[in-house]
Simulated scan of single mutants.
Amino acid sequence: MSDVRAVVATGRGEPVKVVTIRVPDPGPGEAVVRVQACGVCHTDLHYREGGISDDYPFLLGHEAAGVVEQVGDGVVDVAPGDFVVLNWRAVCGVCRACKRGRPQYCFDTHNAAQPMTLTDGTPLSPALGIGAFAEKTLVHAGQCTKVDPAARPAVAGLLGCGVMAGIGAAVNTGGAGPGDTVAVIGCGGVGDGAIAGAAMAGARRIIAVDTDPVKLDWARRFGATHTLNAAESDTVEGIRELTGGVGADLVVEAVGRPETFTQAFYARDLAGTVVLVGVPTPEMELELPLLDVFSRGGAIKSSWYGDCLPERDFPMLVELYQQGRLPLEEFVTEEIALDQVEEAFAKMHRGEVLRSVVVF
Rank of each mutant, 00 (worst) to 15 (best):
Met1Glu: 13
Asp3His: 08
Arg5Gly: 05
Pro24Trp: 14
Asp25Ser: 13
Pro26Asp: 08
Val33Tyr: 06
Arg34Met: 10
Val35Leu: 00
Thr43His: 08
Leu45Lys: 10
Arg48Pro: 06
Arg48Ile: 07
Glu49Leu: 14
Gly50Lys: 02
Gly50Thr: 03
Tyr56Glu: 03
Pro57Thr: 03
Ala64Trp: 02
Gly74Glu: 01
Asp77Trp: 05
Val78Trp: 05
Ala79Asp: 02
Val84Leu: 07
Val85Trp: 10
Asn87His: 14
Ala90Ser: 15
Val91Glu: 14
Ala97Glu: 15
Pro103Arg: 10
Thr109Val: 15
His110Asp: 02
His110Trp: 11
His110Ser: 12
Ala113Ile: 09
Ala127Asp: 09
Ala134Lys: 06
Glu135Trp: 05
Lys136Phe: 12
Thr137Cys: 13
His140Pro: 02
Ala141Phe: 05
Ala150Asn: 13
Leu158Trp: 09
Gly162Cys: 07
Val163Thr: 09
Val163Phe: 09
Ala183Trp: 00
Cys187Lys: 02
Val190Thr: 01
Gly193Asp: 11
Ala196Tyr: 12
Ala201His: 08
Asp210Phe: 08
Trp218Gly: 11
His226Ser: 14
Thr227Trp: 11
Thr227Leu: 03
Asp234Gly: 11
Ala248Ser: 11
Val252Trp: 04
Phe261Lys: 01
Phe265Ser: 10
Phe265Tyr: 15
Tyr266Gly: 06
Gly272Pro: 15
Thr273Gln: 01
Val274Asp: 14
Val279Thr: 09
Glu283Ala: 13
Met284Asp: 10
Leu286Ala: 01
Leu290Trp: 03
Phe294Trp: 03
Phe294His: 09
Ala299Gln: 15
Ala299Leu: 14
Lys301Asp: 05
Ser302Cys: 13
Ser303Thr: 00
Cys308Tyr: 05
Asp313Cys: 03
Asp313Ser: 06
Phe314Gly: 06
Gln322Val: 07
Gln322Thr: 08
Glu343Tyr: 00
Glu343Met: 04
Leu354Trp: 04
Leu354His: 03
